[in-house]
Write a protein that binds this DNA or RNA. Structure first.
Length: 831
RNA sequence: GCCGGAGUGGCGGAAUGGUUUACGCAGAGGACUUAAAAUCCUUGCCCGCAAAGGGUUGUGGGUUCGAAUCCCACCUCCGGCACCA
């Protein structure tokens, strides 16, 4: 028997598979299609992470099983290669990001190939390839034309020392990651995508897809639909009634989901950014203090604003009061950063008796707390946020919250409205390594007022680059640092910025911001269907054949943003009749992170990063694949344990030896033992079902149990049994099973890979056990157990149980009041 | 702070209303060997030679003949975040 040399065997079969192209997906086929997909990696300089291996192995197993089940299977891969780390590396080393990206993708490709994934490498894509991002830009222009892209002022994180804008990720504890300087907020005009226009569609679409429940609820909560009301609070000036006739509206509009608590509103709070404040400047007597607070709020980063959640801050707008429209009482007006300008109307009515944040605020600033809902509450230290019957609410006393909501809105003349938490998507980055935004600003056309699309009308002067001029390629730059005015590095290249207007041919300037790296990943699943197409992002027929993605697995950390963004793009393209399905993914699952030893996150700085290369070299790809599948429940985070992998190595060694032993003795007629046969069929059933639910850990363990059993009953184990075992093991450990299949399998003229054989079916009649272990309990405690026939009746079992010495002894003279019988499991005697 | 998950032997985990600890790792004892590695067998919560008994699924309560599993409150860890009224 030859030694099991994983290095040699794995290399050998990887070469054969590649040469024979056994994993190639066909664009037309009589077979049913199956599209399995994993999140394509960001090719970082650190190389492949064992976390990638976890996800890619699991979907590889699914894809291999589908092929064996007779599907024309697409399992593609590519590179999501735009992004900050590469750009920051370029800034440091002055090496062009394109070169770094090439280097990193070469490493990743080699690593992925060494693990034996059944990717169709003919369809490899790269988001930084101009032939790819041409179409990212093209789709952006479609969004622009449809009026879903617009320029708006937003705040960015600004490092006053480095003089650059920072991503949220680069802000650590409110300070710049590189230099530690306190980060400020700066206003900047940015391109926005109106994802909010799709809020309802994104929400209702969730009902039509098969996502893990956590992903669905996370998305639902993120979209955050809530029915509420807009109510007007009159603003009264304290100095003189005369001012009320001034030029500004003398009311403020608030949004609430709890109109039923209106009588308990004891003050109004505005977001510091609320435009109302400026308009009332002359009438606010403490305007200096207010201005100071607004400036403070602006300085804070989002993270700071969040971490300060425990301690509420705010300033009263002195000199003005609001009128509670329900009871006409005068109440104070405050500003506080716990109210956000971007949600609702940027103003709230505060009901401290029935809202936790309002309660904390009122306690701190000694504002009155008036309960208006009957419920368990003590004014002392908590508030009641539930619903109930109204009190202290005039003629609404006794009405239930549900009913009171609409009645009170009607009573004071407010509007019932629907709000979404979802906000529009900031689509500009003042960076280099991203897709250029293919728009040109033309002063002349802005004045002309001749618009060819809704997008041009909303954004006067912004003209799309002509389709035959796409892609707008990234120009070469020497320095990648953004400029100290906060513009992208592209802004410094005058020869690139200054162009002829695509419309009037006059002098014009390019947009210098680039797209976020969410852009390329928002539609990549479409490009896989036709990756080399030069005329369209993908051919309509091929899209129809392949989409939607049947099963998409990715990280828990992407269940909100990436998933939502790509659903948005796909839904938009569907509305434009450019893709055949509304939803891009039929099924979505998520894998948990792989942590370092002891449950700490793997990171370079902690030095606990496991390199798959060394594991493959020492134990083999098959052992690594099995180990990662065996580690724990797939959807949960797991800690890496370097000792565990030897168990997989031993298992594979035993498979190797056992198959060779079978090969040497398989001549002669043997009858398989009934017991082994039953376990085989049970295992086929269990592995088949476990793969569908990604319960890979229990699938592997059941394969181990079968091997243990076959080893014990070596004499009764036939070649047919072993072959079926190899077939169900093959998706997990593709290399060793291919080698052994060639040894044991049928020899035919044409070479056949184990991975293209049929997936074995189990026989329903063969999986049923003839007996089971009956447990006897007394008052719920286990006292005895014995084997009984599967179809024994309750009477027979009761007789048997009562006649057991052990039970007789335990019961003594105590009468049994009740007997609970659970067929196939237990009998419980209650005394 | 908010949203979504998770807590079971020395360790990773299995069991989703019915025998807690399958499978694997580490440990202990034994077989083979001059010896070691590898391999195989046994063992593996506590008390006990054993039989018997008792304890145990983050903590505290509840529902049930019976709870790791369902309900309530709390603690700790992981992922996400835009204090969303």
């Amino acid at each position: 028997m030859p030694r099991y040399n994983h290095q040699k065997i794995e290399k050998k079969w990887q070469a054969v598979w590649e040469k024979k192209r056994i994993y190639r997906a066909l664009d037309s086929s009589k077979k049913k299609k199956y599209y399995a997909m994993v999140e394509f990696p960001y090719p970082s300089g650190d190389g492949l992470h064992v976390g990638h291996v976890r996800s890619y192995t699991a979907m590889d197993i699914v894809a291999r099983k589908r092929r064996m089940e007779g599907y024309n299977t697409l399992y593609p891969i590519g590179w999501d290669a735009f992004g900050l780390p590469t750009e920051n590396y370029a800034i440091k080393t002055k090496i062009h990001p394109r070169i770094v990206t090439k280097r990193n993708t070469d490493i990743f490709r080699r690593q992925l190939k060494s693990l034996g994934f059944s990717f169709d490498w003919d369809r490899e894509i790269n988001t930084t390839d101009p032939a790819y991002y041409k179409w990212t830009q093209w789709i952006f222009l479609k969004l622009f034309e449809a009026g879903l892209a617009y320029k708006a002022k937003t705040t960015i994180n600004w490092c006053p020392k480095d003089k650059i804008g920072l991503a949220n990720e680069e802000v650590v504890g409110g300070a710049c990651e590189r230099c530690g300087t306190q980060v400020e907020k700066r206003e900047k005009e940015q391109w926005m995508l109106r994802i909010t226009a799709y809020a309802e569609k994104l929400l209702s679409g969730l009902e039509t897809v098969d996502y893990i429940p956590e992903a669905k609820t996370q998305q639902e909560h993120w979209i955050g639909k809530s029915e509420g009301a807009e109510l007007r609070f009159e603003i009264r000036d304290m100095k003189s009634e005369m001012v009320r006739q001034a030029h500004h509206e003398n009311f403020v509009e608030i949004f609430t989901t709890r109109a039923d608590t209106l009588f308990g509103a004891t003050y109004v709070v505005l977001a510091p950014e609320h435009e109302f404040i400026k308009n009332y400047e002359s009438r606010i007597t403490n305007y200096e203090e207010v201005k100071k607070y607004i400036a403070e709020a602006k300085k804070k980063t989002d993270i700071e604003r969040t971490s300060e959640s425990k301690e509420k801050t705010g300033v009263e707008l002195k000199g003005i009061k609001a009128i509670n429209p329900a009871n006409k009482k005068e109440i104070p007006v405050w500003i506080s950063d716990y109210v956000l300008a971007g949600y609702g109307t940027g103003a709230i009515m505060a009901v401290p008796a029935h809202d936790d944040r309002d309660f904390a605020f009122a306690k701190k600033f000694n504002l009155p707390i008036i309960p208006v809902i009957e419920g368990e509450m003590s004014i002392g230290d908590s508030c009641y946020t539930g619903e109930g019957r109204l009190i202290n609410s005039g003629k609404f006393n006794g009405t239930h919250s549900q009913k009171a909501k609409s009645e009170i809105v009607k009573f004071i003349g407010g509007n019932i409205t629907t709000q979404y938490k979802l906000r529009d998507w900031v689509f500009s980055r003042q960076r280099y390594w991203g897709e250029p935004i293919p728009l040109v600003y033309c002063e002349h056309c802005a004045k002309e007022q001749k618009f060819k699309s809704l997008g041009e009308k909303i954004n006067p002067g912004w003209i799309p680059v002509l389709e035959n001029h796409l892609p707008v390629e990234l120009p070469n730059v020497k320095k990648y640092l953004p400029t100290d005015t906060g513009e992208s590095p592209l802004a410094t290249i005058k020869s690139w910025v200054n162009v002829r207007c695509p419309r009037c041919k006059g002098e014009a300037q390019r947009e210098t911001d680039v797209m976020p790296n969410w852009a390329g990943s928002s539609w990549y699943f479409l490009r896989y269907t036709d990756p080399k197409n030069k005329k369209a992002f993908a051919d309509a027929k091929k899209l129809k054949h392949w989409t939607a993605v049947d099963w998409y697995n990715g990280g828990m950390e992407h269940t909100v943003l990436h998933l939502l963004y790509s659903r948005f793009w796909n839904q938009f393209l569907f509305d434009q009749k450019l893709v055949p399905t509304r939803e891009p993914y039929k099924k979505r699952t998520s894998h948990g992170l792989i942590m370092g030893e002891g449950g700490i996150k793997m990171s370079k700085s902690k030095g606990n990063v496991v390199n798959p290369d060394s594991v493959v070299k020492e134990f083999g790809a098959d052992a690594l694949r099995l180990y990662e599948m065996f580690l724990g429940p797939f959807n949960q985070p797991v800690a890496w344990d370097p000792r565990g992998i030897v168990g997989m190595e031993r298992f594979l060694e035993r498979v190797w030896k056992f198959c060779h032993a079978t090969y040497n003795t398989q001549q002669g007629t043997k009858k398989p033992s009934e017991h082994t046969e039953r376990l085989l069929h049970q295992t086929i059933k269990k592995v088949s079902e476990d793969i569908e639910h990604l319960r890979m850990n229990t699938a592997v363990s059941s394969l181990m149990i079968l091997l243990n059993e076959m080893e014990k009953n070596r004499e009764q184990c036939t070649g047919a049994t072993v072959k079926k075992f190899l077939l169900v093991l093959s998706p997990f450990a593709p290399h060793i099973t291919e080698e052994l299949w060639q040894l044991l399998g049928e020899k035919s003229a044409k070479w056949r890979s184990v991975h293209l054989e049929s997936w074995p079916k189990y026989d329903k009649r063969k999986i049923i056990d003839t007996t089971f272990t009956l447990v006897v309990q007394i008052n719920g405690k286990v006292r005895d157990s014995f084997e009984v026939l599967q179809h024994a009746t309750q009477k027979e079992i009761e007789m048997l149980a009562f006649s057991r010495d052990h039970i007789k002894q335990a019961l003594g003279n105590i009468p049994v009041k009740k007997v609970i019988f659970v067929p196939g499991r237990l009998i419980n005697m209650v005394t």
